[in-house]
Amino acid sequence: KEMRNAYWEIALLPNLNNQQKRAFIRSLYDDPSQSANLLAEAKKLNDAQA
C-alpha cells in the first residue's frame, strides 16, 4: 500500500518531467522498501524545479 501511494504521489508531481517520474517509479519497483525515501527525494526535486 505504501508503494502504491508513493507511486501516485510521484506520478502526480507537477514539476517533474516524464523521464524523471519514470526513473523514480522504476526505483520504487526495484526496492519497494525505499518508498518513503524515494517519495521524499521526488518531492525535493519537484520543489527545486518549481
Rank of each mutant, 00 (worst) to 15 (best):
L45E: 03
D30M: 11
R26H: 12
A48S: 10
Q34E: 07
L39V: 11
A50V: 15
R4V: 14
R26N: 15
N15F: 13
A40T: 07
D30N: 10
Q20C: 07
W8M: 14
A23V: 07
K1M: 08
P32Y: 08
I25G: 03
D31Q: 07
E2A: 07
L45W: 03
N15M: 05
R26S: 15
A36M: 07
A11S: 14
A40H: 10
M3Q: 14
E41C: 09
A23Y: 10
D31N: 11
A11C: 09
A40M: 14
D31C: 07
L38R: 04
N18P: 13
L28V: 06
Q19C: 06
K44M: 12
Q19L: 09
E2S: 13
A42G: 01
R4Y: 15
Q20I: 04
E2P: 07
N46I: 01
L16R: 00
K43H: 12
K1Q: 06
A36N: 09
P14Q: 08
A6R: 05
A6S: 09
N18Y: 14
L12G: 08
M3V: 13
Y7W: 14
S33E: 09
N17R: 05
K1P: 11
S33G: 10
S35Y: 12
E41D: 12
R4F: 15
Q19P: 07
I10R: 00
N5E: 11
Y29D: 04
Q20G: 00
I10M: 03
N5P: 06
Q34G: 05
N46Y: 01
L28P: 00
L38F: 04
A6G: 04
Y29P: 01
K44I: 09
P14T: 07
L12W: 12
F24L: 12
L45I: 09
Y29W: 14
E41W: 08
I10Q: 00
Y29L: 13
M3R: 12
L12H: 15
Q19G: 06
S27N: 08
Y29G: 06
D31W: 06
A11V: 12
I10L: 08
A11E: 10
E9C: 04
I10A: 00
S35N: 08
R26K: 15
N18G: 11
N18V: 13
R26M: 15
L13E: 00
A23C: 09
D47E: 09
K1F: 03
R26Q: 15
E41S: 08
A11R: 15
E2D: 13
L45A: 04
K1S: 11
L12F: 12
A36S: 12
K21F: 02
L16N: 00
N37W: 09
A11T: 15
N15P: 00
I10Y: 00
L12P: 01
Q34A: 08
A42M: 01
L45R: 03
N17S: 12
Q34W: 04
A42V: 02
E41G: 05
L38N: 02
E9T: 06
R22V: 14
S33W: 07
Y29S: 11
L28E: 00
A48M: 07
K43N: 06
N5Q: 14
K21H: 01
R4I: 15
A42C: 02
A50H: 12
Q34D: 07
P14N: 06
Q34C: 08
K21L: 03
L16K: 00
R4L: 15
D30Y: 07
N15Y: 11
L28N: 00
Q20H: 02
Y7H: 13
D30E: 12
K21M: 02
N15K: 04
K21N: 00
F24G: 02
S27Q: 09
I25M: 13
P32C: 04
L16V: 03
R4K: 13
Q34L: 08
S27D: 10
D31Y: 08
A11K: 15
R22K: 08
K21S: 01
R22I: 15
Q34S: 08
S33Q: 07
F24Q: 02
K1N: 10
A6T: 08
L13P: 00
Q49R: 15
N15A: 05
A42P: 00
I25N: 02
R26V: 10
A6W: 14
I10S: 00
K21Q: 01
S35L: 13
A36Q: 12
L16A: 00
L39I: 08
S27H: 08
F24R: 02
Y7V: 05
N18R: 10
E9R: 06
N46R: 01
Y7T: 06
Q19V: 11
P14V: 04
I10N: 00
L39S: 03
S35C: 07
L39D: 00
A6H: 09
N37I: 13
L39C: 04
E2C: 13
A40Q: 07
N37F: 05
W8I: 15
N18K: 12
D47C: 06
N46V: 01
Q49V: 08
W8A: 14
L45H: 03
A48D: 07
W8H: 15
M3S: 12
N18F: 11
E9P: 02
R4T: 15
F24I: 11
I10E: 00
N15Q: 04
M3Y: 08
S27F: 08
E41Y: 06
S27W: 13
A11F: 13
E41M: 10
A50E: 12
R4Q: 13
F24S: 03
L28G: 01
A48W: 11
A36L: 08
I25D: 02
D47S: 09
N5R: 14
Q19H: 13
N18A: 09
R22M: 14
Y7M: 14
D31L: 04
Y29H: 13
I10K: 00
Q20T: 04
E2M: 04
R26W: 12
Q19I: 09
F24E: 01
K43F: 04
L39K: 04
P32R: 03
N37K: 12
N5I: 12
D30F: 08
N37A: 06
K43D: 02
A40S: 10
A48E: 15
Q49T: 06
K1C: 15
N18T: 10
Y29F: 15
D47N: 06
N37Y: 10
N46S: 06
R26Y: 11
K44R: 13
L12D: 09
K43T: 05
Q34T: 06
R26L: 15
N46P: 01
R4G: 13
R4C: 15
L13I: 01
S27L: 14
P32S: 04
Y7S: 12
K21V: 02
D31T: 07
E9M: 09
W8Q: 14
L38P: 01
A42K: 00
E41K: 09
K1W: 02
K43A: 04
D31H: 12
L28W: 04
K21E: 01
Q34I: 05
Q20R: 02
N17A: 05
S35I: 14
A50T: 07
N46K: 01
N18Q: 12
P14W: 02
I10V: 04
E41I: 06
N17G: 04
K44F: 08
A6D: 04
K1Y: 02
N15E: 03
F24T: 03
N5W: 10
Q49P: 03
K43P: 00
D47M: 08
P32G: 03
L28A: 02
L13R: 01
E41V: 09
A6I: 10
